[in-house]
């Protein structure tokens, strides 16, 4: 009933059309890299900021999620906006089920933001020298689950924004309040992964970060479920 073949078709189509133009890929990648550069310029100027390890880690955690949020807001709305702009939504609505369209696009968006996170996270942490006490496994788990939640909410909000005539900035506006619970947990978890609030060797980072991972996982599950249910009504209008 989940229609693996249809989801696979939408997912592949998203990747293929993106790969031939690389518009979302290049714009978001440059956005992420530019953001890291600005953060490094702001915090590594002369005279250097005298931050201790926990402060640097906290600043890095906050900046990382601000960066991922705005990177997502520049690229993840395209999935639905393009269908409406180019009129392909019509043919898609004639042939595809709501669940297949949403899941296929969500998976492609998740892949995009995860790919960007894989580039941006180590860059930012090295640039701010915040990785001295890093727990790489926890960091990976937090970033991955957070990105899945961002992809879910932004794919859904992107479907709404696609209906509006003035789209610029609207995706960020719509998704920010809905993403707030994800951000507090993700930032807290990232700080734990960077060694804030955990004493090395005594309390393993996972003990601190487990609650955050649970919040992030439940956020992902709830947002995917809610988006799937509501998108069905929008698609079969």
């Amino acid at each position: 009933m989940w229609g693996v073949r249809e989801i696979h078709a939408v997912f592949l189509k998203e990747l293929r059309t993106e790969w031939r133009t690389k518009v979302a890929l290049s714009s978001t990648a440059l956005f992420a890299i530019g953001g890291v550069t600005l953060a490094a310029l702001a915090l590594r100027g002369n005279p250097p900021l005298a931050l201790d390890d926990p402060s640097r880690a906290s600043v890095a955690a906050g900046l990382l999620w601000i960066l991922l949020f705005f990177t997502g807001a520049t690229g993840l709305g395209r999935a639905f906006a393009l269908e409406e702009e180019r009129g392909t939504a019509l043919a898609l609505r004639l042939t595809a089920r709501a669940s297949a369209v949403w899941i296929g696009k969500f998976l492609a968006n998740a892949l995009l933001i995860l790919g960007l996170a894989i580039i941006a996270t180590p860059m930012l942490i090295t640039a701010l020298d915040a990785g001295r006490n890093v727990n790489a496994l926890l960091l990976t788990c937090v970033v991955a689950s957070g990105c899945i939640g961002i992809a879910a909410t932004m794919t859904f909000a992107g479907a709404l924004v696609a209906q509006a005539s003035a789209k610029s900035g609207l995706l960020a506006t719509l998704s920010l309040p809905a993403l707030a619970p994800l951000f507090v947990a993700a930032i807290h978890g990232t700080r734990a992964a960077l060694g804030v609030g955990t004493r090395l060797g005594i309390a393993p980072a996972f003990q601190t970060g487990m609650g955050d991972l649970q919040v992030l996982a439940s956020y992902a599950v709830i947002s995917v479920t809610a988006a799937l249910m509501l998108f069905d009504y929008l698609w079969n209008d």
Partner: peptide, 23 residues
């Protein structure tokens, strides 16, 4: 007249895609 296809895909890829999503 307003039925549009993906411009960066070939005609064959377009039709294959719609055939796939319609199973």
């Amino acid at each position: 007249p307003d039925l549009a296809f993906y411009p960066e895909l070939t005609a064959q890829e377009n039709l294959s895609f719609f055939a796939e999503v319609r199973t």
